[in-house]
Design a protein around this nucleic acid. Structure first.
Lengths: 129, 129
DNA sequence: CTTGACCTTCCACTGTACTGGAAGGTTCAT
DNA sequence: ATGAACCTTCCAGTACAGTGGAAGGTCAAG
């Protein structure tokens, strides 16, 4: 199948597929006499794997690592487990941080809603921040 | 004060201060005969305001808007309130999204921890994703 | 008079995941 | 034979908030 058909089947664009090849996520495809890329059926699965990895919050670099391990004939299970655990810890930290920030902003927002519409002093930029 | 002293006093770098000037967040400073920037004392407060804005999750562009309003002699209170409200809604959406993602990854991670260390099929890249 | 710390401008690069567009080649239907 | 739809490569740009470095000017101390 040509690149446009793969893009259609995998739910992405030809631009993105070429970008994935440049990034080492897709192996360089076989070429037709015309120079067109000619993909095997399993390419759809590979792109699907990339999408599932992204949905799990992995970066393309991390997904690339998993793919490389698989290409070397090894099973990436434990590596994947490590990545997922790492991602989980990052997420927890990120969520905590955002909750703290939400609290801060919520307080500032309430303060800014108080009925005191005059007298911003000239020296400071804004008494709410 | 020269740029290095302002950077020291405000807890940032000279690079960043010049970048702020280029971005319109700091007004072009007065120059000494040597060409060196010569800042007034209140510049420290202005940089502090930028930092507080960032701590509240505003972008430099949004902080720049507030500063511009102030420069035009107006009070930015209601604008700031609007920005904070907007930021609050964005944060809530972001937090919700991350919690969903956390749940997804948590499940994948548990699945990857199950005691079934053999039999990754050859067709798929990894049975955990 | 030179060394070192400081300053100036300008250009390019960082990371992430693409996206846009130009210039040209291929394939197929009409 | 010509037009549309597809493909190729390569270069550049997006958003964000800076950071790195080169080439050169300034200032005080030794």
């Amino acid at each position: 199948m040509r690149i446009g058909q793969l893009a259609e089947a995998a739910g992405t664009t030809t631009k993105t597929l070429r970008f994935y090849e440049d990034s080492g996520l897709l192996l360089p495809a076989e070429r037709l006499a015309s120079g067109y890329r000619n993909y095997a059926e399993d390419a759809v699965g590979r792109v699907g794997f990339i999408h599932r990895g992204q949905a799990a919050g992995l970066t393309l670099a991390q997904i690339g690592q998993i793919l490389k391990i698989r290409e070397h004939g090894q099973v990436p299970c434990s590596h994947v487990k490590g990545l997922l655990g790492e991602r989980l810890r990052e997420l927890d930290a990120q969520i905590t941080e955002l909750l703290v920030l939400r609290e801060t902003i919520s307080q500032l927002h309430e303060k800014a809603s108080e009925p005191e519409p005059d007298s911003c002093s000239a020296e400071q930029v804004c008494r709410y921040l």
